[in-house]
Design a protein around this nucleic acid. Sequence first.
DNA 1: TTGACGCGTAGGAAGAACCCTACGTATTGT
DNA 2: ACAATACGTAGGGTTCTTCCTACGCGTCAA
Lengths: 103, 103
Amino acid sequence: MTADLFAALASPVRREITSLLLDGPRPVNDLAAHFSMSRPSVSEHLKVLRDAGLVSERRHGRQRLYRLEAAPLRELSQWLSPYERFWREKLADLRELLDEEDL
Amino acid sequence: MTADLFAALASPVRREITSLLLDGPRPVNDLAAHFSMSRPSVSEHLKVLRDAGLVSERRHGRQRLYRLEAAPLRELSQWLSPYERFWREKLADLRELLDEEDL
DNA sequence: TTGACGCGTAGGAAGAACCCTACGTATTGT
DNA sequence: ACAATACGTAGGGTTCTTCCTACGCGTCAA
């Protein structure tokens, strides 16, 4: 597991950024417009996302386009899978309980 | 999305605890034995997990058994699903590219 | 009832996170 | 060449996190 993937996603601002990037790459000003904080602060959030590999940067003239990257999210899904098994067992237990109730 | 679910999972110690709890409920001392930190610190981590709903507590004599809870993990899976669609598209694009290469 | 056990919480130190403004750098339009 | 645009980074204040030790409370065993 990448060290600070969860830490990167722990911030609501950064989750909102990743959500915005689902619609495609965007420049920083465009992203910053969605928040009530200074543009440099958004830049710092982008740095955290970049360090976690969640986002990549491509220069385009004087803009920098940030693009969502899939790999860390796949890792997250893999991290989750043992727990997925866990909660499916819980659901199965519940179903069993309900079946007994039907007797 | 529960406010601090990601924050709760951002700590390696807390992820290790949830992983340990996959095998079933455990008392605090049992959990603390897996870490090179003081038992009260582990208690504080458990409080964070409890506040995030990831863990529940059941008193049993003078022990407190901590149990993994499935609900927040299901939420996490749901949060991930739009991104899952996203990375599947990426894989589809890649496959298409490889197909063109075959011409 | 007295002592040991299992645990939570208070208080505090050290470091990290988060936000700001000020400034530097590269690129574009005139 | 010059001003404006788009952005990153430095420096700094404030608050959160994470760990510690000290202590208090409930439970069990003798």
